[in-house]
Design a binder for these strands. Structure first.
Lengths: 231, 231
DNA sequence: ACAAAAGTGTTATTATTACACCCATGA
DNA sequence: TCATGGGTGTAATAATAACACTTTTGT
């Protein structure tokens, strides 16, 4: 094989959670040039003998102190435009992480600060460093569409959750209200989506609600299509 | 920023087409070590100042002589396990290309031969070099599921095609028969999926069939779910 | 008692399936 | 005329959307 150019390879993370009924993303404030002081997605270089998913996992742990088991982590897409990093040729493999409300994030090694910000705010204008607006946008769109066809929404919930907590995830990610009664029926009838526990809770007020755990299904049949809402 | 390891970055292509009512993938026979003589997906190094999509496009052209306009090309996923290439650390960005029946492929620079082989055959056992079985598998799965929700199936058809030609794409990719009458209604009623032309053809035999072009829609509503088939 | 959220019933509309049947061509 | 696929009609079933209504708690 002929000679070939050398690239730096990084992983960047789109970490999403629901806070205050809003879809929020984890951003860090850059402590170094370029883009010093601007917000960016957390991320870092892939190590010499490290798998891509392992690098994503490690970066996630560094920023959130959460283990792989508590978070849904999947590869999102790879970005490698020649000038996306002004210093050198960097190809970044973006990962999407979803988690229930997390502890206050901690700043990583080259970050001055880390915090949650509403995804909608971050996506307007071009607030983020590098091509991170584009990466975040891809992550949000992936989350939105996977909610339709997969039980992914449960990744935003604690281990045991009520139907209305699950509904508020859909409402936050899709950005609109859903009928509580039809939603309830749909998700509870959907085979293996939710498994009921023995417990109930009144933490949401009103009549006690049954607590569920996420079931073994990978694909929802039928899907919970966003477009279902006529109006 | 600290120092970082150097990676080689390649693009690999999962090029799919329908030939003889079967989903087939383009494979090349390796002319060099490692895996010399084995079949592999076409691909190659990303150039110094080249975008990833441009590299994929270039490799596609080198193998198939087809321009970007005639082929659907989308990023699939990135593979970067530390030992996936025994020579050095290589991260590969896989692209999925779909096209109507293509001219005989030509072998690229380091390939001894290039040919179409049924995807199902390539996927059984571990026939392909490197981790290419895994990459092909991801490509086939992506195609299968995008057929449900997007008008992607038209990418396997010539510019003008009949409903039954479109149906045979679904049948080849999903691997089973569909009801011609219900399929016809579904796709023709689906808003902006197909736009009728003035022409008809009798190339499939029987009564002349109207020719369609693919419409402007990006997402099918409602989707053509695979699971629709009860039995 | 009352508010608030959980959960069930009902009805109209739409999508899906299965399959009977007619249509337009080539041989 | 007959075989072949193109295309429409129809009835049973299932999913959806809209919303009335009952249930069970906390205050």
């Amino acid at each position: 094989m002929a000679k070939h150019p050398a690239f730096a390879v990084t992983v960047d993370l789109v970490v999403l959670t629901i806070r205050a009924d809003t879809l929020q993303a984890l951003v860090v404030q850059r402590g170094e040039q370029p883009f010093k002081g601007q917000w960016a997605l957390p991320g870092g270089f892939v190590h010499e003998d490290e798998d891509l998913a392992a690098a994503a996992s490690r970066e996630l742990q560094e920023e959130t102190a959460l283990s792989r088991e508590e978070v849904h982590l999947e590869q999102l897409a790879t970005f490698g435009a020649p000038q996306r990093d002004p210093r050198m040729r960097v190809v970044t493999v973006a990962y999407l992480a979803l988690a229930a409300d997390l502890p206050k994030p901690r700043a990583g090694t080259d970050a001055a600060d880390a915090q949650w910000q509403p995804a909608a705010d971050l996506l307007e204008g071009d607030r983020l460093a590098f091509d991170h607006t584009e990466i975040l946008s891809a992550g949000v769109e992936r989350a939105r569409s996977k909610l339709e066809y997969t039980p992914l929404a449960t990744a935003f919930c604690p281990t045991e959750f009520t139907v209305s907590e699950l509904r508020s995830v859909y409402e936050a990610v899709w950005g609109g209200p859903l009928d509580p009664r039809n939603f309830h029926r749909k998700v509870t009838k959907s085979e293996d989506f939710l498994v009921p526990t023995e417990h109930t809770t009144t933490r949401d007020g009103g009549r006690p609600a049954r607590l569920y755990r996420c079931g073994p299904v990978n694909l929802l049949h039928p899907p919970l299509l966003r477009v279902g809402r006529t109006n």
